[in-house]
Design a binder for these strands. Structure first.
Lengths: 245, 245
DNA sequence: CGGATTTTGTTACACGTTGTTACGTAGTGC
DNA sequence: GCACTACGTAACAACGTGTAACAAAATCCG
């Protein structure tokens, strides 16, 4: 494929600058755009491998642009949203976007998602609804996505609750990337309208992490797999190997 | 039948766009419409296999449109509504909708329902009624609709009560689609119908499900066929093969 | 018709799951 | 050392579900 060419679409120039700069630092070609017209001209001028599209574009609507892009060309799109409300809507409707990410986001997380989308030869699978029958292995453990079965290193099945399973899925999708509590809560679609405010959110995630640790860590007091990133959140800090069945 | 042609009727352009995009991604032809006039013109112009109809259409009334469509043409309709109040649901069925789905909805669920409705070659309308003189097989079991006989994988006849049979029929008609207790109750035409309020409804469905499980599940404690969708309802989670006799 | 039997709905309790609270402890900066 | 903050977790409460036991209703049958 060569060097990936990305389109960064955001009407806030600071944001645009920051994102393009960051992506370029990581070896990608990042082209800024602030409105649909600029997007179109870039698409006409040359190859574009991925579009990062802000949901709120002043008077224009990112979602509609996304829809139109989908009608015309087969370019992957990652939606970027500042409002958790948008976030919810996108999750609910799963527009045509290949992935979505909420502002403010962790740069590493953005990079990971960009790479993930770029590496998908085939479209149509996304973080939002991945229904591939896959098997993940990590630190000797096995997770079958289809059946949601978890097998310990000595092949004993371990029963995880729904939330625990969802947490594990989220972690498996983002190995080595520190996830904030808010990110985890969003991914788990937490009930309490998780207003992104720091401590308006309870300790639900902490407790959940503790419970998952109790089931998959040999010594939950000194976790080797699901580590704490003090002041940040949690990291799934072992390699994940995923193979198709 | 070829590629299914769907009509997406919603006065909110975001919603319309998202739904059409999503349906197109899944290999269907999705035509947007925002009012009854557009629906009519689409119907006049060519074949339409299914209509997704929003209940709230600004000044127009989706329910009335659905009724009129029913009077004129034999096109399946799935009602889409932001209001999940049960009386709304009932109204949807009353005017002849084939199914009903509440916003915000899971895209996969929408797709499942669309496919379910499309796969009903014959219109017998809605969850409530069933096609006749057929044989269904699932997970080794056999169900003869005509005689209402149920045969276990080792061809032993199992006696189901009337309610249990009705429940099984409802489930067979909606494999892989989670059904709420209210939906099941409606399909079984339960009690005085009127008080479909959230938890005013007793545990009748739970008990009924338990009893059916006791007869068709190898291990009722760990059901493989009729699974619980916590907070939602129940799913018939095995494939159903139905053939003409 | 009347009694027996089967079916069906209700109630009560057990149990698992999940978020909250409270408190103990470990890390951090001074 | 101290104070302060972040984290771990036990205990608890709220909730949903499974199910046994009972009661009511329907059905069967002489």
């Amino acid at each position: 494929m060569g060097i990936p060419r990305l389109l960064v679409v955001d009407d806030d120039s600071d944001m645009r600058q920051m994102m393009t700069q960051f992506l370029r630092q990581n070896g990608m070609i990042a082209l800024p755009a602030s409105c649909e017209r600029e997007v179109q001209s870039h698409l006409n001028e040359g190859r574009v491998d991925l579009i990062l599209l802000d949901v709120m574009l002043g008077d224009e609507n990112g979602l509609e642009i996304c829809g139109r892009l989908r009608d015309e060309q087969d370019v992957p799109v990652i939606m970027v949203s500042a409002l958790s409300a948008d976030h919810q809507r996108m999750k609910g409707y799963a527009v045509g976007a290949d992935d979505y990410i909420a502002k403010p986001f962790n740069p590493d997380l953005l990079l990971a998602r960009v790479k993930a989308v770029l590496s998908r030869a085939r479209r149509s699978s996304s973080l939002v609804h991945r229904r591939n029958t896959k098997t993940f292995t990590f630190a000797g453990w096995t997770y079958h996505a289809k059946t949601e079965e978890v097998l310990s290193p000595d092949n004993v099945q371990v029963a995880l609750s729904r939330r625990e399973t969802a947490l594990l899925q989220t972690l498996l999708a983002n190995p080595h990337i520190p996830l904030t509590r808010a990110e985890i809560a969003t991914a788990l679609d937490v009930t309490g309208t998780s207003s992104q405010s720091p401590e308006a959110m309870g300790r639900a995630i902490d407790v959940l992490v503790g419970r998952l640790r109790g089931k998959i860590e040999a010594n939950p007091k000194a976790p080797l797999i699901l580590k704490t990133e003090r002041g940040v959140g949690y990291v799934f800090s072992v390699d994940v190997v995923d193979q198709d069945d």
